[in-house]
Design a protein around this nucleic acid. Structure first.
Lengths: 147, 147
DNA sequence: AGTGTTGTAACATATGTGGTTACAACGGTG
DNA sequence: CACCGTTGTAACCACATATGTTACAACACT
């Protein structure tokens, strides 16, 4: 018997925008100030939600968090953190596939036999176009625009 | 009191790949052959799922379905139907926003005050990049590759 | 009238999200 | 050392969406 686990990406969740928010705060604030509770106040959500996302950002090597003491700091300069880095850090889906293909089309049919290969490459291209655009913007470009 | 309805896009669902499959079948098969049951056999799913998606494609003006009689046909030539048309037809989300922003960041904070405007334009750019890529491929380009 | 089809409604199941409470581990400070 | 605020997680909830399924009315042809 074969067991297949399908991971659904509900959407590009608000985790992404919250992660950008968090990193922006860390970029412009002193380390000691950046506690989960403080950030939660700015994002306007529960501190645990923030800690969860910060855990992902830490795992991705984007930030350093001080356990016990509290506070966080960037591990790379804001110029070297792109929106794609952030997107990848918090959108944990199998194979990073934005699109999904329906399972097991009928191989006895001309279309069913070919659709997967032909369409998959188109979906990959579309996803790549989006990711390339995200990669063009650095965290510093956002914080530079704050007034 | 203000009521806000948040529409979640669980993902770019398999509705999209199924819709492309359906339209490919309609493009290469005689009208009478294209019944919901026949298509369901090729896609390998329940006929009702197909009928639901065909309803969306009909609503978007991409196909014509013959009630009672059965069968479907394209309302535009395959050269004039792009993957973006199909994507838009089946991904029904408020404002067609691929990305979501967290709600009500704290206005008293420098970051919270600015993040929405600054990040939203980046997200729009990324989404546009993906959609432009989808718009570059026509249904006919897919069916041409079937062998 | 009978048959096969479309069009929906209604429901079941599965899964991700964002929020919440609870609590252990950590690392300073009095 | 005891205290305190913080981080790191586990566990759970409420909710929304996706896909599949049954059921049935409306439709059009024979």
């Amino acid at each position: 018997m074969v067991t297949t686990v399908v991971i659904h990406l509900k959407q590009i969740s608000t985790r992404f925008s919250m992660a950008v928010h968090i990193l922006s705060l860390v970029a412009v604030s002193p380390t000691a100030e950046c506690t989960g509770d403080y950030i939660a106040g700015s994002v306007n959500t529960n501190p645990v939600v923030i800690r969860r996302i910060m855990g992902m950002l830490k795992k991705a090597g984007l930030i350093e968090v001080r356990p016990g003491v509290g506070g966080a700091s960037l591990r790379r300069s804001p110029e070297q953190i792109t929106l794609l880095d952030i997107y990848r850090a918090v959108n944990v889906i199998e194979g990073d596939q934005l699109f999904r293909m329906h399972e097991e089309p009928n191989e006895r049919c001309l279309v069913g036999r070919n659709i997967e290969t032909v369409l998959q490459s188109e979906m990959n291209e579309a996803q790549a176009a989006m990711e390339q655009r995200l990669a063009q913007t650095a965290l510093s470009e956002l914080t530079d625009k704050f007034q």
